Amino acid sequence: QIFVKTLTGKTITLEVEPSDTIENVKAKIQDKEGIPPDQQRLIFAGKQLEDGRTLSDYNIQKESTLHLVL
C-alpha cells in the first residue's frame, strides 16, 4: 500500500502493486475521493509523475507517500 497526502492534509491509503501505472493510481484516487484523474497531479520526491509510467519506474515502494496537487 502507499499513502497519498492531499493539500488539505488528508491522507488516503491505496492498495497498489509496483506494476501499477500512475494512471491506474489516479483512477483509484477517483474511486475513493471522486476527483477526476485529469485534475490530479501526483508528486513524489519533488517530481511530477507521468501517467504512462509505473510506480516501480519511480522507485515508489510500499509505505511511500505521494503528494496530490489539484
Rank of each mutant, 00 (worst) to 15 (best):
T21H: 04
D57Y: 15
L70A: 09
D38E: 12
E23Y: 15
G34S: 05
D31C: 14
F3V: 05
Q39K: 12
K10H: 12
K28C: 05
T13H: 07
K5C: 15
G34F: 04
V69I: 13
P37G: 07
P18I: 10
I29C: 02
I35S: 04
T8N: 12
L49Y: 01
K47R: 12
T13P: 06
T21A: 05
G34V: 02
K62D: 13
E33W: 14
E50C: 14
V25R: 00
Q40P: 01
A27K: 14
L68A: 02
D20Y: 07
V16E: 00
T65H: 15
A45F: 09
V16H: 05
S56Q: 13
E23G: 13
D57A: 06
V25W: 01
V16I: 09
P37H: 11
Q48W: 13
G34N: 08
K26I: 03
G9V: 02
G52A: 10
N59G: 15
I35P: 04
K5L: 14
R41S: 10
F3E: 03
E17I: 09
L55D: 00
Q39V: 11
E50N: 07
N24Y: 13
Q48R: 08
T13E: 07
E50R: 07
E63F: 14
L55F: 03
D20N: 07
D31R: 14
Y58K: 01
P37V: 15
F3T: 06
H67P: 01
L49P: 01
I29M: 03
N59Y: 07
N24Q: 14
K32H: 09
D20K: 02
I29T: 01
Q30P: 02
D38P: 07
T54S: 08
E33P: 01
I35H: 08
K47L: 13
K5F: 07
G34W: 03
H67S: 08
K10Q: 09
I22W: 02
L7D: 12
Q40L: 06
K28G: 03
L55Y: 01
L7F: 13
P18R: 05
N59E: 07
Q61F: 09
N24P: 00
S19D: 12
I35W: 12
A45L: 13
T6P: 04
P37C: 11
L42Q: 00
L14W: 01
R53K: 13
L7Y: 15
S19N: 11
I2S: 01
T11S: 07
S64N: 08
G9A: 04
L68M: 08
T8W: 15
E33R: 05
L68V: 05
Q40M: 15
L7V: 12
T13S: 10
I2A: 02
Q39A: 09
K28M: 14
L49S: 00
S56E: 12
L7P: 14
D31W: 09
P36Y: 05
P37L: 13
T54D: 03
P37W: 12
Q61I: 12
K62S: 15
I29A: 02
D38L: 10
T6L: 15
I29Q: 00
A45K: 14
K10F: 10
P36D: 07
V4K: 00
I35D: 03
K26A: 02
D51A: 07
E23S: 13
T54L: 09
Q48F: 13
T54M: 11
Y58D: 02
L49F: 02
F44L: 04
G52R: 09
P36V: 06
V25L: 13
H67R: 08
I29H: 00
K5R: 13
Q48P: 11
T65D: 04
K26V: 02
E17G: 08
G52I: 08
T6M: 13
I29P: 00
F44K: 03
I2L: 08
D20T: 09
A27M: 13
V16C: 12
